[in-house]
Design a binder for these strands. Structure first.
Length: 210
DNA sequence: TGCCGGATCCTG
DNA sequence: AGGATCCGGCAA
């Protein structure tokens, strides 16, 4: 029944149900710095099956990486870093394990994982996720992936071992086979457009294109 | 300063 | 097949 005492109706602060559920049911460990400070082609493949975890106001969004592209450095004509270090791509030349987020076609943002030692100018584009927990909408394609994770350019340069956005190895990863393809949308890059630097999980329904 | 075109996505 | 829509990079 109702209590005249106003203190009786005061609720204790609610636990954050979503965060609680995630921590109880999803087991993972954050990736450490050494993971990112490796050959970019290797990292692009090693990222398949890894979880991207986004925390917004205590609520988690978790997706499994199923498609990546490697952008090797200034010698790679398809890479933004081929123009040298500029205000836009500065994060690509920063230390590994940080985000490089850029806007494309005036509309969409794209999320990259910076690789190799500081100054190198390489990164891995995350192209598609398989939903694991709390993912709204479509995650097939780099622009949609960012929308679903609420990732925008305010996260450019963010540490990918932070609280708001991090990468994690699931405790019980599912085995898979890796398929290599040419990268999407880089026809201008001549011979570099034909290099097999796109990686995807074979047969996965969430890749952006076969 | 002006212009060109893009690591995309949606509609027709 | 084409439009949305902005801004980085480069030429002038």
């Amino acid at each position: 029944m109702t209590h005249p005492n106003p203190h009786a109706t005061r609720q204790p602060p609610l636990p954050k149900p979503d965060a609680f559920a995630v921590q109880e049911t999803l087991n993972f460990r954050k990736l450490a710095s050494a993971f990112f400070d490796q050959d970019t082609t290797q990292v692009a493949q090693a990222l398949l099956g890894i979880w991207v975890v986004r925390c917004i106001d205590g609520h988690f969004r978790v997706g499994r990486i199923v498609e990546t592209e490697a952008y090797l450095g200034p010698h790679d004509r398809a890479s933004h870093s081929s123009k040298g270090c500029t205000p836009r791509n500065r994060s690509m030349f920063g230390p590994p394990g940080r985000a490089y987020v850029y806007r494309i076609y005036g509309i969409h943002d794209c999320l990259n994982v910076v690789t190799e030692p500081e100054g190198h100018g390489a990164a891995v584009l995350l192209r598609a996720l398989e939903p694991v927990h709390g993912i709204p909408g479509n995650t097939r394609g780099p622009g949609l992936l960012c929308r679903a994770l609420a990732v925008d350019r305010s996260l450019d340069g963010a540490d990918l071992r932070g609280d708001a956005l991090f990468l994690a190895q699931p405790e019980s990863p599912t085995p898979f086979t890796i398929v290599r393809r040419p990268r999407i949308g880089v026809d201008y890059a001549g011979a570099w457009s034909r290099r097999l630097l796109r990686f995807l999980i074979q047969g996965n329904a969430w890749v952006s294109r076969r």
